[in-house]
């Protein structure tokens, strides 16, 4: 077999083998591949080092007094038994509520308008340009907007209200863009089928578009929520206080909280990082607070990413 002649030109199998079998390793190619992989590898390694670093820094607090840390409040000494993040957690929860109540409905409704109602024209392209540019505005500029709108008109007192709305505005373009993408992916055959039996536009949106786009919209809203929870710069601008917040008698979830000065998880972390220059113990507290924040944020992102790939697979 191996010595059989192929065709009439005297080419043997062995000779063809010799010609087309790869000659050793492609050194250039494999080193390029390795280089590209190491770029990805380094990026992932950085993430691992980062997580290990905050875990190591926060470890003493997390292992010895996690419960007290979560229920504790902001204190002036890192050794204080009552030091903790309850106010930060409460503030971040309030921010999440603002985002859910404001950004989600307005963002999803904008996306529906752009994808299902808007006709080509000046208004539509103006809305489109506005949303795309808003998505690229640095977060600190949203802080300036919040400062301008709420704080200066409120005798310089910053409130949870101002911070919550500022972050809701910040993530609005993300909600619009991800929701619009999800709506665009709805097969037109479904919409046509519904129109074909006499459905109105709202019927089609309600019964076909939204159910089909729901997983994509949910993914986008989850990502934007985690972005809002991790964002600090706009809050600093609207004046979330970065150091001590006096413990209060009433419940931190009471509605009066809306008119109080507030803090949030990222702000607590920034404050403690600054305190660490004076009192090194705060670095450990900041590390522990970061672990708590990261657990929440990474959990939300992971759910969003997994949900998306699940539906991508399911729908081919």
């Amino acid at each position: 077999m191996a010595l059989g002649t192929i065709g009439g030109d005297g080419r043997t199998t062995a000779r063809v083998e010799q010609e087309i079998f790869s000659r050793g390793r492609d050194l250039k190619g494999s080193s390029f591949k390795t280089l590209m992989f190491s770029a990805l590898g380094v990026s992932i390694l950085v993430l691992v080092v980062l997580i290990v670093d905050v875990l190591v820094d926060g470890w003493p607090v997390l292992t010895t007094r996690l419960g007290g840390f979560i229920s504790g409040t902001l204190r002036s000494q890192s050794t204080d038994e009552l030091l903790g993040i309850s106010q930060g957690l409460a503030g971040s929860l309030w921010i999440a509520i603002f985002v859910i109540l404001l950004s989600f409905p307005i963002g999803i409704a904008s996306a529906i308008y752009l994808e299902e109602y808007a006709t080509q024209g000046r208004l539509t392209s103006a809305i489109d340009i506005a949303i795309r540019n808003l998505a690229g505005v640095p977060s600190v500029v949203y802080g300036l907007l919040g400062l301008f709108l709420f704080v200066t008109t409120n005798n310089g007192e910053s409130t949870l209200f101002a911070g919550g709305i500022t972050l809701a505005i910040l993530v609005l373009p993300i909600v619009v863009i991800t929701s619009a993408e999800a709506i665009r992916a709805v097969p037109s055959s479904l919409k046509q089928g519904a129109y074909g039996v006499g459905a109105t536009k709202w019927d089609v949106i309600r019964t076909q578009v939204l159910p089909f786009a729901a997983p994509g919209i949910f993914t986008g809203t989850l990502l934007s929520l985690s972005r809002a929870i991790g964002e600090a710069a706009p809050l600093i601008l609207v004046g979330a206080i970065t150091d001590r917040l006096a413990p209060r008698d009433r419940s931190i979830f009471s509605p009066e909280q809306l008119d109080d000065r507030f803090t949030a998880m990222p702000i607590v972390i920034v404050g403690w990082v600054q305190e660490a220059a004076r009192d090194v113990g705060f670095a450990a507290a900041a590390g522990a607070a970061i672990v708590v924040l990261l657990v929440v944020v990474i959990a939300m992102n992971s759910v969003a990413v997994m949900l998306r790939s699940y539906f991508e697979k399911k729908r081919g």
Binding site: L190, G193, G196, V197, G198, T200, T207
Partner: peptide, 19 residues
């Protein structure tokens, strides 16, 4: 058009059952 389509139904090239 909605009233029209309720009187004049349509079947499409590719079967398009709703999910």
């Amino acid at each position: 058009p909605v009233e029209v389509r309720r009187r004049i139904g349509m079947v499409f090239q590719k079967p398009n059952p709703f999910p």
